[in-house]
């Protein structure tokens, strides 16, 4: 088994690279469909990393987690969003964004650097092969939060939240791979319910307000006497 360790570590590094790429993709893609596709890709890289860590650190429980994640994240969640969010929202090509794409990418680059320094504050991975997961996962978390901040459409904002969750899991799995199975199982189910509830809320928003451009929702504000 020991002979495989470097191979597993390099494969995990590959997954981390693809994870970071798709986190940038979530931010930079102009199309709603592309955004969802990058989310699927990002989830697959998280699952790949979970499987590699399960083998490399001998935690068979994680294989069950990976299986559940595979059923929920790249398959069930996109299906739910398609079902509950009207097709016309997905057909729209352009996503409105507060900051333009080159500007966003520059900020994202800076955030990734910050994540590298912040990762030093977190405890290191419990095994050397997971070392890369901590800074990359933290970068995924920050990029997800930034995506949430700059996107003005409902579905991309929701996917920004999923990006944060993926980042948390990507870093967390390396820091504490032996989390109780019940808890690990609860996380993807939670995201499933989030997708369902926010999906329905998006549809209601579309019906009541006539748009899913949630950046335009500003009737509730703190103002001095009118």
């Amino acid at each position: 088994m020991a002979n495989f360790a470097p191979v597993l570590a390099s494969l995990n590094g590959l997954a981390a690279g693809a994870f970071l790429m798709s986190a940038f993709g979530l931010l930079a893609t102009r199309q709603m469909q592309g955004c969802l596709r990058f989310y699927k890709l990002q989830s697959l890289t998280v699952i790949a990393s979970i499987v590699l860590i399960a083998i490399g650190m001998h935690v068979p429980d994680l294989l069950a987690v990976a299986l559940l994640d595979f059923a929920i994240k790249p398959l069930l969640i996109p299906w739910l969003l398609r079902r509950y969010v009207r097709e016309e929202i997905f057909r729209r090509r352009e996503i409105d964004q507060v900051l333009n794409i080159p500007g966003s990418l520059l900020v994202a680059l800076v955030l990734t650097l910050i994540a590298y320094f912040l990762a030093g504050l977190l405890p290191p991975a419990s095994d050397a092969m997971g070392n890369i997961n901590v800074p990359i996962g933290l970068a995924g978390l920050l990029l997800g939060a930034f995506t949430l901040a700059v996107r003005r459409e409902a579905v991309p904002q929701l996917i920004g939240i999923f990006g944060i969750e993926n980042g948390s899991l990507f870093a967390g799995i390396a820091i504490a791979p032996r989390l109780p199975l019940v808890a690990e199982m609860a996380f993807p189910f939670d995201m499933l319910i989030v997708a369902l509830v926010i999906g329905i809320l998006t549809r209601i928003t579309h019906e009541r307000v006539g748009t899913t451009e949630v950046g335009a929702l500003r009737s509730l504000r703190e103002e001095a006497a009118k």
Binding site: G137, L138, L141, G144, A145, L148, A154, Q157, L158, G160, I161, I164, E165, G167, S168, L169, A171, G172, F187, V194, V197, I198, L201, I204, T205, R208, V209, V214, L217, S219, L220
Partner: peptide
């Protein structure tokens, strides 16, 4: 609906960060 949207997005985002 606007209030529900802000409530859910901001607090679920907080939850995703606390997860780590």
């Amino acid at each position: 609906v606007e209030a529900a949207w802000k409530y859910s997005i901001l607090t679920i985002m907080g939850g995703a960060m606390a997860l780590l």
